[in-house]
Nucleic acid binder design. Structure first.
Length: 602
DNA sequence: ATAATAACTTAGAACCCGTAAT
DNA sequence: ATTACGGGTTCTAAGTTATTAT
């Protein structure tokens, strides 16, 4: 379908083209642009080749580490699946892949045709063409699935001591891989475990879901390490690394080609708590703070261009407006062997609906195929411009057909050094947090202050469209909460009746077991009622928050978008222990932000 | 100028495990 | 003691952007 993405209406029916030409012929339609302007008065872009903090592109001077650890070899279980009702013999290699599929029985994937087809195609390659297994419909993986359930149960039944012992054993094995020494400082490695083989789990309608992700061998892996440092010993006897590099302009310790997409790599990096990552994190936030000094100029600039005669300029202006106002992602082109998702530059006509007189409705699948659905009021000129971009284009056609992320970012760089589309998201998120915290924090209890923080956090998550799927048990949890509340209300009402009687000096009647209730003074009953009222209020509040947040993911913005210095400074000013907001990993990740001045403003 | 590649950040789901509720 | 819940951790997919090749 890639053919379509740029040009014709979402041509699902278009014939797949030759593999070589996958994504880029897409661009043809939008070419005309003739961007003579792009590079003109760029006051900044020519200078500043190198990012400020990094010393000429050099990322480290010495680097030592122990390479990566591989998953254990496959251990056959010997449980026979059925084909056409009969048990079949499988080699360990064949059984391994069958098991990968079998254990996914209770996931959504197991029901998806693409997943099944891709799995079966790859599995049959391993079965060989003369194998008795020919049709997926005749396969019965249940015996293997049940074996898997038994194994899971066994694991669950282990005592916590056994589990602990197992964990410590693993830790001991992995200990040496967990650490690197960078410029003489011991740092944690992020992902030192090589990804185990499995069936590819793409998000959304991913055309490759279910494909076999083959086992990675040492000969797939390139190691990057300091010149003086010992090359890590290959952990699998008799095998060896693909290549050893000594490149101090990059931060990766190792990589291999992604077996699902040969052109992609899987990298091993340092952990988020490392100073290398911390430094670049800090630079990210410093850059987005700089945007404050330019934002007025940028807004004036694009507002002016809303009425430009030059359609390219108008498209850039409107796209920048959307990125600024709605924190949309840039939106790169995608290959046709990926899920069809879009960002700002790749929005299609049918993702964006004009609702007179001045509202725009957005409805599209963004990163991870998460739906973005939002209706916003826009200025008249924006509305008119978007109407204009629709004109004469069929559904499936690009809204911004004269734009792509490169052109957009080139334009942004002219407005501020180093400015790119994603900076707006960071800026938007962080300044929103800073604003809300300053406006809404009052002298109150610790709990109230934390609630303010969470509200702000939620606001940001909604702006950034950070979603999570509702937990399977959400509904039953809500029902239970409601029952509890009803129960409390009943108790309260009964107490009210009691109170009335008590005030008149009448006996209180019987409790639910039929025994007469002990008489209590009215004041005591009133107290009880008040206590229950408070409890009800609290539960109603909990319920509301739970319902409110059932699809909102707060973590993503905390980890990636909110300048931690805003949070740390706020905690200092309001005597909130930082541990109430940041967990252990965030504290480690944001070590660089801890000594911030309490008066820090984003 | 455009396309391909490389390197890095951002993302939600799955899993795991301690603790609160029963 | 047992289960349920939810926070934290791990996993790896899916983005963005800078650089390099054509």
């Amino acid at each position: 379908m890639g053919e379509s993405s740029k040009g014709k209406p979402s041509a699902k029916n278009v014939v797949k083209k030759s593999p070589a030409s996958t994504k880029k012929n897409i661009k043809k339609m939008k070419r005309k642009v003739k961007t003579k302007k792009t590079m003109k008065n760029s006051q900044f872009s020519k200078t500043m080749k190198v990012p400020p903090g990094s010393g000429g592109g050099q990322k480290w001077t010495t680097l030592e580490h122990n390479g990566v650890i591989f998953p254990p070899p496959y251990k056959p279980h010997g449980v026979k699946m059925l084909y056409n009702g009969q048990p079949v013999d499988l080699t360990p290699e064949q059984e391994e892949v069958a098991t990968m599929f079998a254990v996914m029985k209770d996931t959504e994937y197991a029901t998806m045709q693409t997943f099944i087809d891709n799995f079966f195609t790859d599995w049959r390659k391993i079965l060989g063409k003369n194998h008795i297994i020919k049709k997926f419909e005749l396969c019965d993986f249940t015996p293997i699935y049940e074996w898997h359930l038994r194994e899971k149960e066994k694991k669950k039944q282990m005592t916590s001591e056994e589990k602990k012992a197992l964990r410590e054993e693993k830790l001991k094995q992995e200990d040496k891989y967990m650490w690197a020494v960078v410029n003489g400082v011991k740092e944690k490695v992020g992902n030192f475990r090589v990804e185990p083989p499995g069936l590819f789990r793409g998000r959304g309608k991913h055309p490759k879901m279910g494909k076999l992700k083959r086992r990675i061998k040492p000969s797939d892996i390139t190691i990057n390490i300091g010149r003086g440092a010992p090359v890590p010993e290959c952990p699998i006897p008799g095998e060896s690394w693909k290549e050893i590099k000594h490149d101090n302009t990059v931060t990766w310790l190792a990589f291999w080609n992604d077996p699902i997409s040969q052109k992609d790599f899987k990298y091993v990096f340092l952990a988020a708590s490392s100073s290398l990552k911390g430094q670049s994190d800090k630079e990210k936030y410093e850059k987005s703070r700089k945007l404050k000094d330019h934002i007025q100029n940028i807004r004036d600039n694009y507002t002016k261009d809303f009425r430009s005669k030059d359609e390219t300029k108008r498209q850039i202006a409107v796209a920048t407006y959307l990125i600024d106002k709605l924190a949309l992602r840039a939106g790169n082109e995608k290959d046709d062997d990926e899920a069809e998702t879009v960002g700002c530059c790749t929005l299609k006509i049918d993702n964006v609906t004009c609702l007179p007189p001045n509202k725009i409705q957005f409805d599209f699948l963004g990163k991870d195929s998460i739906r973005y659905f939002n209706t916003v009021e826009v200025e008249e000129l924006v509305y008119k411009a978007i109407e204009g971009f629709h004109r004469g284009k069929p559904p499936g056609y690009d809204l911004f057909d004269k734009l792509d992320t490169t052109r957009l970012n080139a334009h942004l760089k002219d407005l501020m050094p180093g400015l790119t589309a994603k900076v707006f998201r960071t800026y938007n998120a962080s300044i929103t947090l800073d604003d809300i915290l300053h406006k809404e924090t009052e002298d109150g209890t610790l709990l109230e202050k934390i609630a303010v923080y969470q509200r702000a956090n939620k606001e940001v998550a909604i702006i950034c469209n950070h979603q999570r799927s509702v937990s399977k048990s959400h509904e039953s949890q809500m029902t239970r909460l409601n029952e509890k509340i009803d129960d409390l209300k009943a108790q309260r009402d009964e107490l009210k009746v009691d109170l009335g009687k008590a005030k008149k000096g009448k006996p209180l009647g019987n409790d639910k077991d039929g025994k007469p209730k002990k008489n209590s003074p009215p004041e005591q009953i009133e107290k009880k009622i008040a206590a229950i009222e408070t409890k009800i209020e609290k539960m109603e509040m909990d319920k509301k928050i739970k319902e409110d947040l059932k699809t909102v993911a707060l973590g993503t913005s905390k980890i990636n978008y909110l300048d931690p210095r805003i949070t740390v400074a706020w905690c200092k000013r309001h005597e909130v222990p930082i541990e109430k907001i940041f967990n252990k990993s965030l504290l480690a990740k944001f070590g660089w932000a801890m000594d911030v001045d309490p008066e820090f403003r984003f």
